[in-house]
Each structure stands twice: as C-alpha cells, then as structure tokens.
Design a protein around this nucleic acid. Structure first.
Length: 505
RNA sequence: GGCGCGGUACCCAAGUGGUAAGGGAGAGGUCUGCAAAACCUUUAUGCGUGGGUUCGAUUCCCACCCGCGCCUCCA
C-alpha cells in the first residue's frame, strides 16, 4: 500500500508519488512571529510533522522547508509597541517557537527560511513578473494583475465574478486597479522598516516570500505545500499566481490543508477568553506529549474540538501505552515464543500503517495500537506471553512511535531544560504545595512555570529500596508513608510482579 | 449570499449499502497487605432533523437545522 492524500487542488484523495524517485520536497507555512504561537497553530504544525514523519516512514528522503514570516503589519506594530527593533523582536519569538517545537517533538526541517533574509530574491521574482506584464506600479507599490492569470481561483475554487469591486476596502489599503489584485511590494510608510532595492524603497507583500523561498530551496515545481485551511485563500491562491506566472510551470503538485482547532465548540479568540498558547497549557500542568497526542489524534481534515477534558484523556491514553511498554520490557515471562502472538504484533503494525496511508488517518492508527496493547496485556495476564515475544511488540510500538512520538517519558526533563519547571531544594515543597501548581515568572518575564520539588533518580531508587525493605518486614505504615512522600514530590509508585516501578506525575 | 469542513454513546472519535472500531469516564468483578497498573463484564435497536431510492441506509439522493473556516495579509 502507499500513501493516499487529499489534494485541495483536485478536491480528491489521490495516490501520492513524488516528482523525483525517492525524494519528497515539501514546504509548510510556519508562524508569523509577532507573538507566541497558539494551540491552533500547533494543530497545523503537529499535523505537518505527522505528514513529514510518515513520508520518512515510507522510506522517502524528505527535504522540508518552513518559512518564518518576520515582517508584516503585526510584527512591525508589536515591535514598535515593545520599543525594540524588528529583528530583535522577531528573534525573541522565533526562539520561543523553536523551544515549542522541541517540546512537541516536531522534527527539524532542512531549512527555516526567514522572509527578511530573502528580500533580494523577492526583488528578482517581482522584476520577472514586471517583465512579463503581470505586475504594475502605483504610488510606489507594485501589484499583481490577477486578470492576466487565467487560472486564478483554481485552488480555492472562487468565482472571480462574485467579488464585487469596491465592496470593502481597508482604510489604509493601497490603490489597486482591481480589488482582486494583491500587493507584491509595499511602498514605505512613515516609521516602518523598509529596504532600498532596485524596485525602489519598500517592504515585501505577504505572499511573495513563500513563492520565493519555496522555489529557491525546492525548485520551481515541488511535491507538497501545506498550511492551515484559512491559507487556501488568498495566500496560497496568490502564491500559485505569482509563481506560475513567473515560471510558466506548475508550482505545487499536492496542496494539503489542515482544518482548524476550536475550543469547546467555539472559535478560539482572545476576547472569548479561550485562547491558549502552548505555554499556557504547560503552566496548567499538562505534559507536552499529551498536547501533541491530542493535536495528532483527530485526523487533520476534521475540525478539532479542544477541551481540557480531552487533554486529560490524551494524557491517560499515553500513560496506558507507556505502562504497556514498561510491562513489556520489565516483567518476567517464561522462556520460549508464541508465534500466534508475534503474528498479532505484526498485524497491528500493518493495520497502523494502513491507517496512516489512508490520508493520515491517525485515529485508525491509534486504534490499531490499542487493539494490540489489549491483546498483549490479556496474553500476559493469562500466562500465554513468552520471553521471546517481547521483540515483536516492542518493534511495532517503536514503529508506531516514529510517527506519534509520545512514548518517551521525557516531559519532565524537557520542562526543566527549558526552564518551565523550576526545581526546588528538598524540603522546600513543604512551604509551597506541589499540588498548588503555583506559577512564577521566570526568564524574561514572558513565560511562566510550575514549581516542583525535584528528586534525582538515585534518591527515588533509594526510597524505593527502603520501602521494599519495610514491606518485607510487614511494616506497611512505614512503606505507605514513603509512597505518600514520593507522591508529594510528584513521583508515582506501582508495585508489579517484577518489582516496583516509578514514574513522574 | 458564495466556497469548504463537520454534526456518531457521558466526553474524544473511526467507519461501512448488510446491521456500530478505538481511547477516556462510570458501574460490577479478578489480582493486590493497601493503592496503582493490568485483565474480564457492562454503558448507542442508535449514527443532527424530515423525506426519498433500496430487499436493506448511519453509509446514496433531496430539503432543512446547528457548529466552524474562508470570501478583508488569521494555522
């Protein structure tokens, strides 16, 4: 089986094959770095990561470019409000974005392309469009003449005749010959950053950066271009117009768009008070892996209804998988093998792969793995599981996690690493209850954290040994006290047939 | 108004022209010093509403209702 993907351009699910044998060239629209990205953004970014990972899983050599829009009305406005230069301001949020990416296990692309570092290339493309008669100037700005490009609307299926000229125009909109036309190059305004170029002074329009950076790194025709569904029009439609007008070649083969995230059935907005960044959720005590899992769980073409209940459920689901793997690796089983069970593991792997090939149906892929987990647990409980069967199940689990990337229990370590959790000295937790999950301002004052008393692994292991000794002596009051104390420090103990295990809350 | 996505159990959610995956939550049970984990049983005669096609529809068709997105530089 091979990957089938819904292509916005055709409006159908199509069999995916790359232009070049084994190499897939993909461009995904990244953030505009004027603030922290919100979980709606990350719904799309996680989806793009799932797509990327599945392509790799299927053996493709993936070349991936992500753009960073670091100049636009909002970045300029916010940088000015903050009283810092644009570059310094956007650097700050690019840094935050990259931290978020690591928290969510989003793989690194080959290239993060910043708009402001490609102004020269944009100038060249605009000049090419001017030379071919697709562009015109007006009061220092340069516009794309949409009526010169007959294919306009092929992606978004808009009917151009339906847009009435002069219906609504922004107060500060530049003069255009036709309302459908869009700006390629903006004349400089008072107090705004601008570049002095052969086109004259100004700054780039929004759409031009993606055409330029995509073609620069991926070629004039490449395989996949992805973003949120809101970008279909006008952003991606305009990219197609600019690029294909300039090159005369098809710009992108597969356009893939993620549906939006909503919160409690309503759209997310600051005014409704249901607007969350990744940091907001972490400050509430949720694990990054749970957030990733939730965002990945709903197949990308369906709106995702974000709720805290759903986030809690995601956390439970991950725990179930991690518990299973722990049992698989640590529990003692009789020697030998059970071929029927190993076939079961292999079948689960095939079912999960089939789900992913089916337009990245992550829900199906998850069901496949949970079916396997239940069957394996049952076999273990019934004594049918053999020592030699571990590998087959671990193998399927490992393959599954190449895409979902939630199995490794490193949330705590990552949060400490990036300063979201500030470990307290031992004993300090008495003064500040761990349960309170108190937020404190740390770093540059633009993030928050959960306070937690942090025990080292060695300290935890020693406590467990002490508890086991007490249990052997039948001193259950003592052993329960140790367990309670560890729980207060965020460590959960579980007694299994193969000994006591621990994990961080 | 135009284009698009969606409405499946308490919550999230898959799915198919032939009689409803999976996860979470709840209830009962097994195991355990207790707890946790795990397992077993159980929770939709029903898939937004009303029609139609069909031997048979949640799945196809029509109409309608509701949510969301875009149609103004929003992932």
């Amino acid at each position: 089986m091979s990957l089938r993907l819904y292509n916005t351009l055709s409006g159908q699910v199509e069999e995916f094959t790359p232009l070049e044998d084994n190499r897939v060239r993909i461009y995904t629209c990244g953030p505009t770095v004027y603030d922290y990205a919100h979980i709606g953004n990350y719904r799309t970014f996680v989806f793009q990561d799932i797509l990327r990972r599945h392509l790799k899983y299927r053996g493709y050599d993936v070349v991936h470019v992500i753009n960073l829009t670091d100049v636009d009305d909002k970045t300029i406005r916010n940088a000015r409000a903050a009283g810092v230069p644009l570059r310094e301001y956007t650097d700050r949020y690019i840094e935050a974005y990259k931290v978020d990416r690591q928290l969510l296990n989003l793989e690194e692309p080959q290239k993060f392309a910043r708009a402001t570092e490609h102004v020269d290339d944009m100038v060249k493309l605009i000049q090419a469009l001017e030379a071919k008669g697709f562009a015109y100037r007006n009061e220092g700005s340069i516009y794309f003449r949409v009526e010169k490009f007959p294919d306009y609307g092929k992606l978004s299926k808009i009917d151009l005749s339906g847009i009435r000229a002069g219906a609504r125009v922004d107060a500060d909109e530049y003069d255009k010959a036709n309302v459908r036309d869009f700006v390629l190059w903006k004349a400089p305004k008072e107090d705004e950053p601008h570049w002095d170029t052969p086109l004259g002074p100004g700054r780039p329009g929004w759409h031009i950066e993606c055409s330029v950076m995509a073609m620069k790194y991926l070629g004039e025709t490449f395989d996949i271009h992805s973003g949120g569904s809101d970008l279909i029009f006008p952003h991606h439609e305009n990219e197609i117009a600019q690029s294909e007008a300039a090159t005369g070649k098809p710009f992108v083969r597969f356009w893939v768009h993620a549906e939006h995230l909503i919160v409690n059935g309503e759209k997310m907005s600051k005014s409704l008070g249901n607007y969350y960044t990744l940091r907001d959720l972490i400050a509430k005590g949720y694990k990054p892996a749970a957030i990733r899992y939730l965002l990945a769980s709903v197949p990308y073409r369906k709106p995702l209804n974000f709720t805290f209940d759903g986030l809690h459920q995601a956390q439970q689901s991950i725990d179930r998988l991690r518990n299973f793997r722990f049992r698989l690796t640590k529990e003692k089983f009789p020697e030998g093998e059970n071929p029927a069970l190993q076939e079961r593991a292999q079948a689960a792997r095939e079912a999960f792969e089939e789900g992913m090939d089916d337009n990245l149906n992550t829900a199906k892929a998850e069901a496949a793995i949970f079916d396997m987990v239940r069957d394996a647990n049952t076999a273990m409980d019934r004594g049918e599981f053999r020592d030699g069967d571990r590998g087959a199940f671990l193998d399927t689990l490992e393959h599954w996690d190449r895409i979902f990337a939630v199995m490794e229990d490193d949330d705590h370590a990552k949060l400490v690493k990036f300063g979201f959790i500030k470990p307290l000295a031992k004993g300090a937790a008495d003064a500040i209850s761990w349960q309170d999950e108190q937020k404190i301002a740390i770093g540059n004052g633009y993030t928050s954290a959960v306070l937690v008393e942090s025990l080292t692994e060695e300290e935890i292991e020693n406590q467990i040994k002490e508890r086991e000794a007490a249990r052997r002596r039948g001193e259950y009051a003592r052993s329960d006290q140790i367990r309670d104390n560890l729980l207060k420090a965020g460590v959960i103990l579980e007694d299994t047939k193969s000994g006591t295990r621990w994990k961080r809350k």
